[in-house]
């Protein structure tokens, strides 16, 4: 790959619930171009009434070629990066095939439906010349990134405990209609959708593998979720191999909490830090860091980082597939 050539993207899955069209973020780096798109009902429950027609329209909108077989995308020698925007139940096969063909991959969390799915994806990555990036976690936010920097500098000493509260508020996602099919295609409801962000953030802050997880998944608020067996609230108690612990509560709340984003408390042997929304406070001293950010600009930086990781092997993706494997372990190993 020469410096001036743009990376070519292929997309597998369009309009699937829980997927964020990460190819758009790659395009925003101005270092990529979209070559082809494959979508349809077989990639998971989504928001199009006619998934095939929706995928064709999406390809047209982005001036890409519509391809009817995902095999043709992951086998296309011209494709450099595959954006796998499929439901967890079918996602791992496309991640694996792309990696086997030494194609870089981006995807949302989680890596698959089961821990075995995630294991196979990571094995494929280990045997590939390429690697993947899984978008998950709030460690990319400036306030959390600053906290991570302070931890790395030793300002807080050894991290002993982390607590995280993260809620999506204001009711069920607009236009989303939970179905049994959707539930069967994912490892959990909001325990996974929102929980993944909380868990990955905790893992990054502690910086050690998860040893043990206790979890309660609940349906507190929505009969629509209850009808299909999906949780809308979850609490995790996590123990890490270095002795640190974390509690994480996540949920989709039916009311709004203005200006609230993620809440984090972290206690180390030398200090304590608290994040409320975008503000970080560090003690002793009480100094404040204002981590306000522009979301599109932040995502552009995140995906530029991923692109840079392709050409420079010293740059690691901000959330790796090994992180995804650890995440999947917490979903699989829970004791409740």
């Amino acid at each position: 790959m020469t410096a001036h050539k743009k990376y070519k993207i292929g997309v597998v899955g369009v309009g699937v619930w829980g997927c964020h069209s990460l190819e758009r973020e790659l395009l925003n780096t101005n270092m990529c171009e979209l070559k082809s798109v494959c979508g349809g009902d077989e990639f998971g429950a989504g928001f199009y009434d006619d998934a095939l027609a929706g995928a064709k329209a999406y390809a047209k909108e982005l001036n890409a070629e519509f391809i009817s077989s995902a095999e043709d995308i992951v086998n296309d020698p011209e494709i450099d990066i595959v954006s796998v925007m499929s439901a967890p139940s079918v996602k791992s096969q496309w991640l694996i095939q792309a990696l086997r063909n030494d194609k870089y991959v981006v995807t949302d969390k989680p890596l698959g439906l089961t821990f075995d799915d995630a294991m196979r994806v990571c094995e494929a990555e280990r045997n590939s010349k390429a690697h993947g990036f899984m978008l998950a976690g709030y460690h990319i936010r400036p306030a959390v990134a600053e906290l991570l920097s302070l931890i790395a500098q030793g300002r807080l000493g050894e991290v002993k405990a982390v607590s995280i509260r993260l809620n999506f508020t204001g009711g069920i996602f607009q236009g989303f209609n939970p179905t049994k099919r959707w539930r069967e295609e994912i490892p959990g409801g909001e325990s996974v959708t929102i929980g993944a962000h909380g868990l990955i953030t905790a893992m990054k802050l502690v910086g050690a593998p998860v040893e043990d997880v206790f979890q309660i998944r609940k349906n507190d608020f929505y009969r629509e979720y209850r009808a299909v067996g999906a949780d809308d609230y979850a609490i995790y108690n996590v123990r890490f191999t270095n002795g640190a612990v974390a509690n994480i509560s996540v949920g989709r709340l039916p009311y709004r909490i203005p200006n609230e984003d993620i809440s984090i408390e972290l206690t180390g042997t030398e200090g304590y830090a608290q994040i409320n929304g975008t503000e970080l406070k560090v003690y002793p001293g009480g100094e404040t860091f204002d981590g306000k950010f522009n979301a599109p600009e932040l995502l552009r930086e995140v995906f530029t980082h991923f692109i840079n990781s392709i050409s420079d092997k010293n740059i690691k993706p901000l959330t790796s597939f090994d992180d995804g494997l650890m995440l999947q372990k917490t979903f699989t190993d829970y004791k409740k």
Binding site: S163, I216, G271, P284
Partner: peptide, 21 residues
């Protein structure tokens, strides 16, 4: 777990230095 309710209780007495909240 308390029936339909769950109680998460965090008791953190590790803020041992002075000038901590």
């Amino acid at each position: 777990p308390m029936g339909k309710v769950t109680f998460l209780f965090e008791y953190n007495t590790m803020l041992l230095k002075d000038d901590m909240p």
